[in-house]
Amino acid sequence: MSIQHFRVALIPFFAAFCLPVFAHPETLVKVKDAEDQLGARVGYIELDLNSGKILESFRPEERFPMMSTFKVLLCGAVLSRVDAGQEQLGRRIHYSQNDLVEYSPVTEKHLTDGMTVRELCSAAITMSDNTAANLLLTTIGGPKELTAFLHNMGDHVTRLDRWEPELNEAIPNDERDTTMPAAMATTLRKLLTGELLTLASRQQLIDWMEADKVAGPLLRSALPAGWFIADKSGAGERGSRGIIAALGPDGKPSRIVVIYTTGSQATMDERNRQIAEIGASLIKHW
């Protein structure tokens, strides 16, 4: 067993022997301040990774656009098919120029040779490549099948209805392509620590998230040296922004954090800054 596999296998073990965790309302004060600064709703939840206990939450059962955070769930569904012998990570998928959609920095470079399922998941999570996500959605049967996968996990809230990039439209009061912070946090925890996926697939999923290259201005910008984070960000229309993450000190994750916002007129930089400040408060009061 590799060191990384050992780390993920012992996530519940280490967490069980940690000192009790206590909620700190100071972080919620910052979440509410972010709402004021952005002029928009902000949803927040913080779960203990081992027990699933909610440590703090704000608007945990209000719907927010998922945006690209759905790509972690998508690759979880792909990995479940791999575990069941219905898919192979090494299978190569070929596609054409007509398949390319807006923001496809990886797939646009491989029109000639195609990409493997493993490479597509890596591109979808680490670079948020939209064509990679659409190609992977095709392998599982489309958005409705991802929703069905989530329902089978016990998540009857999260739903995907459309493809990239239309799913980022974020129309107010439109339930399409949305989740709730509580539902997303619980589902992410199941994917990373539950028995739904094999140990190898859980490790692969967290490795992809740990290698995320496009979430630097968010929670990662607030992390002290030595902290662990595996995350996936999302951005959408109407001032929408979000991030889902597993993080913790001492090089291992111990909490799940989900943050979503929508309806702001603020710039992307300002949305990023507010999420980073929430992260800084979380870490300060850990």
Results as ranks from 00 to 15, higher is better:
H24F: 11
P25A: 01
P25H: 10
E26K: 03
E26I: 01
E26S: 10
L28Y: 11
L28F: 05
V29F: 13
V29P: 09
K30G: 14
V31R: 03
V31E: 07
K32H: 01
K32E: 00
K32F: 04
D33F: 04
A34W: 04
A34H: 10
A34N: 12
E35Q: 00
L38E: 12
L38N: 08
L38K: 06
G39P: 09
A40C: 01
A40H: 05
R41C: 14
R41K: 10
V42N: 04
V42Y: 00
G43K: 03
Y44L: 11
I45L: 11
I45P: 05
L47H: 02
D48A: 04
S51C: 07
S51R: 11
G52V: 04
G52T: 01
G52W: 04
K53N: 12
K53P: 02
L55A: 06
E56L: 06
S57P: 08
F58K: 15
F58C: 15
R59M: 02
E61R: 06
R63A: 04
F64P: 12
F64T: 12
M66T: 07
M66G: 05
S68T: 01
S68L: 01
S68R: 08
S68P: 09
T69L: 04
F70W: 08
F70V: 01
K71D: 03
K71G: 03
L73I: 10
L74R: 09
L74S: 11
L74P: 10
C75F: 07
C75L: 12
C75H: 11
G76H: 05
A77T: 09
V78L: 10
V78M: 01
S80L: 03
S80H: 11
R81D: 07
R81F: 13
D83L: 02
A84S: 11
A84H: 08
Q86N: 14
E87T: 14
E87L: 14
E87R: 13
L89R: 02
G90R: 10
R92Q: 12
R92E: 04
R92D: 07
I93M: 13
Y95S: 01
S96C: 05
N98C: 03
L100W: 15
L100D: 13
L100C: 12
V101N: 05
Y103M: 05
Y103Q: 01
S104H: 01
P105V: 03
V106D: 06
V106M: 09
V106A: 13
V106G: 06
T107Y: 00
E108Q: 00
H110C: 12
H110E: 15
H110V: 15
T112R: 11
T112Y: 01
D113G: 05
G114F: 09
M115W: 00
T116Q: 14
V117F: 13
R118G: 13
R118N: 12
R118W: 15
E119G: 15
L120G: 08
C121H: 13
C121K: 09
C121W: 03
S122H: 13
A123D: 04
I125C: 10
I125N: 15
M127L: 05
S128M: 01
D129H: 15
T131K: 02
A132G: 11
A133Q: 08
A133W: 03
N134F: 12
N134D: 09
L135N: 11
L135A: 08
L136Q: 03
L136D: 04
T138C: 13
T139G: 07
G141Y: 00
G141A: 09
G142C: 05
P143G: 10
P143D: 01
K144H: 11
K144Y: 07
K144P: 04
L146R: 02
L146P: 02
T147H: 12
T147I: 15
A148M: 15
F149M: 15
F149N: 10
F149Y: 14
F149G: 14
L150E: 01
L150G: 06
H151L: 08
N152C: 11
N152G: 07
M153A: 10
D155V: 14
D155W: 13
D155Q: 13
D155S: 13
H156R: 05
V157M: 10
R159G: 11
R159S: 04
L160E: 13
L160C: 08
D161M: 00
W163P: 09
P165I: 02
E166L: 10
E166F: 06
E166A: 11
E169T: 02
A170R: 02
A170M: 13
D174P: 12
E175H: 00
E175F: 00
E175L: 01
R176P: 04
R176N: 13
R176H: 02
D177N: 04
D177E: 12
D177P: 04
T178Q: 10
T178N: 01
T179K: 12
T179C: 05
M180H: 00
A182H: 07
A182K: 15
A182E: 06
A183S: 09
M184W: 05
A185G: 03
A185C: 07
T186S: 07
T187P: 04
R189I: 04
R189Y: 08
K190I: 15
K190E: 13
K190P: 15
K190V: 15
L191A: 04
E195G: 09
E195N: 11
L197N: 13
L197F: 10
T198F: 12
S201G: 12
R202G: 11
Q203H: 15
Q203E: 04
L205N: 08
L205H: 07
L205A: 07
I206T: 12
I206L: 13
D207Q: 02
D207P: 03
E210R: 13
E210T: 13
A211V: 05
A211Q: 00
D212T: 10
K213M: 05
K213Q: 03
V214S: 04
A215V: 14
L218F: 01
L218M: 12
L218A: 01
L218E: 01
L218N: 04
L219C: 09
L219H: 12
L219G: 09
R220E: 14
R220P: 08
R220D: 15
S221H: 01
L223S: 04
P224D: 04
A225V: 04
G226N: 07
F228A: 10
A230V: 01
A230Y: 13
A230H: 04
G234L: 08
A235V: 12
G236S: 13
E237H: 09
G239E: 07
G239R: 07
S240C: 12
S240D: 00
G242N: 13
I243H: 07
I243W: 10
I243G: 12
I243M: 13
I244G: 10
I244N: 11
A245Y: 12
A246L: 12
A246C: 05
D250Q: 02
D250P: 09
D250V: 07
G251P: 05
K252Y: 02
K252E: 02
S254V: 02
S254I: 06
I256L: 14
Y260H: 01
T261E: 14
T262F: 13
T262G: 09
Q265E: 14
A266K: 00
A266E: 03
A266F: 15
T267Y: 12
M268H: 13
M268K: 10
R271V: 03
R271L: 10
R271E: 02
R271Y: 01
R273K: 06
R273N: 14
R273G: 11
R273Q: 13
Q274S: 08
Q274G: 03
I275Q: 15
I275F: 04
A276V: 03
A276T: 04
E277M: 14
E277A: 14
G279M: 08
A280K: 06
A280D: 05
S281F: 13
L282C: 14
L282F: 02
I283E: 15
K284A: 05
K284T: 04
K284P: 03
H285Y: 02
H285G: 06
W286M: 04
W286N: 13
W286I: 04
